[in-house]
Nucleic acid binder design. Structure first.
Lengths: 128, 128
DNA sequence: CACGGCATTTACGTAAAAGTCAATTTGCGC
DNA sequence: GCGCAAATTGACTTTTACGTAAATGCCGTG
């Protein structure tokens, strides 16, 4: 496991721009260390970036991704905070389950659509 | 099955604004019929709205949703077009399968996070 | 030490997806 | 046929998530 990654290494790996990584830092999603003014990204930062991009693909906003990332962190020490966090996590999981239902429905409709197309091809006498 | 719905009925049902529905019409996603200037939404429009909102929850842009909706429509008559459409559908399905992987990973990490919280509560001597 | 090549900061720009507001227009309920 | 809530249109504004440009810093190499 490498100790540090440069900003351009990560932009190439993930197919994003330096602007995007700096933006995520401004938004408090990542906090790479510095050598002088230069950012050095640790493996943990790299993992965070993966989580951020995953969240993006699922249609979460930066604010939502920030919330989700906080859920992955060390649980708080105070009981009330812990219970609140558990409730929040459960809410987010419910949201994800809704997304899963949406996803399955969309996949099913696309299956139908493709089948219709194939059928139509057969009608036209095309040997698939 | 009702023949027509008014715009406000649908905004209430789906929890969106009239502005949003008109915006979707401007974008060519729906095309309710008119009586004078008033829009009348048919069940098929209602179903389209459901599909649009599903797409939105999955993080698709209007442009992407427009593409997906076209995939649900009657397959084209020409062989080349049909094959193209089948390829497009397959691409979109692959994208959805990626989203499903993202979703399962995120759910798994949230499961872990919740478990950590519960564990921490037990350490603090809280009877769940 | 000058140079090329990344990095950084600051500042402004922009596209998408609506929200908001104001000024009409309609149509149904009596 | 009238009144008024509901609907429409058009213009303008807002938010999010970066893109882009300009000016400057840092650093290894020949």
């Amino acid at each position: 496991m490498r100790e540090y990654y440069t900003i351009t290494e990560l932009t190439r790996e993930f197919g994003i721009s330096t602007r995007t990584l700096r933006f995520y830092e401004d938004e408090g999603l990542i906090a790479p260390v510095r050598r002088g003014r230069t950012r050095l990204f640790r493996p943990s930062d790299r993992h965070l970036i993966r989580q951020i991009l995953r969240g993006k693909r699922l249609g979460f906003s930066i604010a939502e991704i920030r919330e989700i990332i906080q859920m992955y962190r060390e649980p708080p020490g105070e009981v009330g905070q812990l219970k609140l966090m558990i409730r929040r996590i459960e809410e987010k999981r419910e949201e994800l389950r809704q997304k899963r239902r949406d996803l399955e429905e969309t996949l099913a409709e696309l299956d139908d659509a493709e089948e219709n197309c194939v059928e139509r091809l057969v009608e036209l006498g095309v040997t698939t």
